[in-house]
């Protein structure tokens, strides 16, 4: 009798464990797969100016490609920062400078998937931003800070040429939706935009 209950409990708990594993894994799988598909779209966009969506019915599009000099990160930055878009990749915050232009280009991404790496960015590390024309720009990390989500000053123009990467903070909090954010600032290295 008790043995049956124990068995039932054991398999019940096991199914719960598998279900949660699947739920957690799904988020990572989606984040990974979407980036792969968008990468393929980006190549076409850069080389043939082809703008087919990454998958049928996709309502966002890549605006830039963010890589580290070390080569361990290669991310497609998407056109907005809605929750739906961020599941597929980091997003460019609307109203801030367009990737590639002079100004403050603000991008944000999930702390537990795409933007997990920004926690480990050190001063002096170099980041590369490629835009759809194929132009590239190199940035150097100059600092990071913890801010409240209301401190939107970080997203405003500062007069210099920089990118700001934003993710949620603390990095390992279990429940999403906290008010703190972590921002990494990287300045553009002096570089020509166009030479004859």
């Amino acid at each position: 009798m008790t043995r049956h209950i124990r068995n039932f409990l054991f398999f019940g708990l096991m199914s719960l464990a598998i279900w949660q594993l699947f739920e957690g894994g799904y988020i990572h799988a989606k984040a990974w797969l979407a980036q792969h598909l968008i990468h393929a779209t980006w190549q076409k966009k850069v080389s043939h100016n082809d703008v087919t969506p990454p998958w049928p019915g996709a309502d966002m599009h890549p605006v830039a490609r963010l890589t580290t000099k070390k080569g361990d990160v290669d991310l497609m930055v998407l056109s907005d920062t809605s929750a739906r878009t961020l599941a597929f990749g980091p997003g460019h915050m609307a109203g801030t400078t367009i990737p590639g232009d002079y100004g403050n280009v603000v991008m944000s991404g999930h702390r537990d998937t795409h933007f997990a790496f920004i926690e480990h960015l050190k001063d002096g590390e170099q980041l590369n931003l490629e835009i759809s024309s194929g132009d590239q720009k190199t940035y150097e990390v100059v600092g990071s800070k913890v801010i409240h989500q209301r401190e939107i000053e970080v997203a405003l123009e500062t007069g210099d040429d920089r990118i700001t990467l934003i993710t949620c903070y603390p990095f390992d909090s279990l429940i999403p939706g906290g008010p703190m954010r972590y921002a990494v600032i990287a300045r553009a290295l002096p570089q020509p935009y166009l030479k004859i």
């Binding site: 719960l16 594993l21 988020i27 537990d112 934003i166 993710t167 949620c168 429940i175 999403p176």
Partner: peptide, 17 residues
């Protein structure tokens, strides 16, 4: 408004698992 929300429930799911 505020800076975008940038975290998922994945670590909670994995913890529960």
């Amino acid at each position: 408004g505020t800076l975008p929300q940038t975290a998922t429930l994945s670590s909670m799911h994995l913890m529960l698992s």
